[in-house]
């Protein structure tokens, strides 16, 4: 059975049930807010992995697509009064298109060159966002989005549902024939071309999917914050996502998503410690890169399953 592993399915459904039960246990909007943020990070890290983990093309500008989605939804709402729900539909289209456009010239580049090109692309977007403040609101961002759900817990359920479905969809994609082809592309492009595979079309399409899910997460996040801020376009966010993917284990989709969920929660918890937050991030990354090849989450889960079996 290549598609469904029973243990994996049961455990992920149990995790979903646990997360779905949270609003029943607490009505604390702060807790729900943290979870919404963490789920957005999970979508971002999972979508990063879709392209970068499978093909080994490490995207250092994922924030470009997150920010584009957030700003698209925010702009439609604040400028034209279009409901946030439509924004959540449009955002992935905008980000996906951007992904294809940026992928077209950059996906030919190898290793570090692709990383730099995407990093620079997002830096250009970030700088433009600040320069074109008349449209984007500059440092302040676009605020005053009208909430789409009556209560925080309603919105939490929306984000949880979309998040779970997105990550499951991406995982299934990674397990499908297309995922296999992408891993082959990551290993050796020339062999794939000789095997009649249109390598460029595969990479660009996947980049568009990856960007679209990032934009979806961006719109959901803006809908929670009721603001699209320039931080969502920053290199800092891109790098945070790469760190999460490394910790989770690249190419597994669920690994980066789970790592993102936990790291976002830990960081939120560490907010009390203020300035030590990023230091902890840096140290975790240092340890992960130095000591592991496949991160923590995926190897740990395999080990656990081995013990249970």
């Amino acid at each position: 059975m290549r598609f469904f592993n029973r243990t994996d399915s049961v455990v992920s459904l149990a995790a979903l049930a646990l997360l779905a039960a949270v609003p029943l246990l607490t009505s604390d909007n702060y807790v729900l807010g943290i979870l919404i943020t963490a789920i957005c990070y999970a979508i971002w890290a999972g979508s990063w992995d879709l392209l970068s983990g499978l093909t080994g093309r490490e995207n250092f500008g994922h924030s470009l697509f997150i920010g584009a989605g957030a700003y698209a939804a925010a702009y439609l709402n604040t400028a034209y009064g279009i409901d946030l729900g439509w924004g959540i539909v449009v955002a992935p289209l905008v980000s996906g298109t951007l992904g294809a456009l940026i992928g077209l010239p950059t996906l030919r580049l190898q290793g570090p060159y692709f990383a730099l090109a995407t990093l620079v692309a997002s830096a250009i977007a970030h700088t433009l966002c600040l320069l074109l403040w008349r449209v984007t609101g500059g440092e302040e961002g676009l605020s005053g989005i009208l909430p789409m759900a009556g209560s925080q817990s309603d919105y939490y359920y929306l984000v949880l549902t979309i998040g779970f479905v997105s990550i499951a969809a991406m995982k299934l994609f990674a397990l499908s024939d297309a995922g296999l082809v992408l891993r082959a592309i990551g290993s050796d492009e020339a062999i794939c071309r000789a095997a009649a595979i249109d390598v460029d079309a595969y990479k660009i399409t996947t980049f568009a999917f990856s960007a679209a899910f990032a934009g979806l997460g961006g719109a959901l996040f803006a809908g929670y914050q009721l603001t699209a801020a320039p931080d969502l376009l920053s290199s800092g966010l891109s790098i945070t996502i790469v760190v999460m993917a490394y910790v989770g284990g690249m190419g597994t989709i669920y690994g980066p998503a789970v790592a993102a969920l936990f790291l976002a929660l830990i960081v939120e918890y560490l907010r009390g410690f203020g300035e030590y937050r990023l230091l902890v991030y840096g140290l975790i990354l240092l340890v992960v890169v130095r000591l592991t090849r496949h991160g923590f989450v995926d190897p740990f889960w395999r080990w656990l399953k081995g013990r249970l079996a």
């Binding site: 296999l180 891993r183 082959a184 990551g186 290993s187 050796d188 062999i191 794939c192 095997a195 595979i197």
Partner: peptide
Amino acid sequence: KPLAGLTVEETVLL
């Protein structure tokens, strides 16, 4: 060259 992470059967099926 081998295709990293693919089995022999998957490589032929590619």
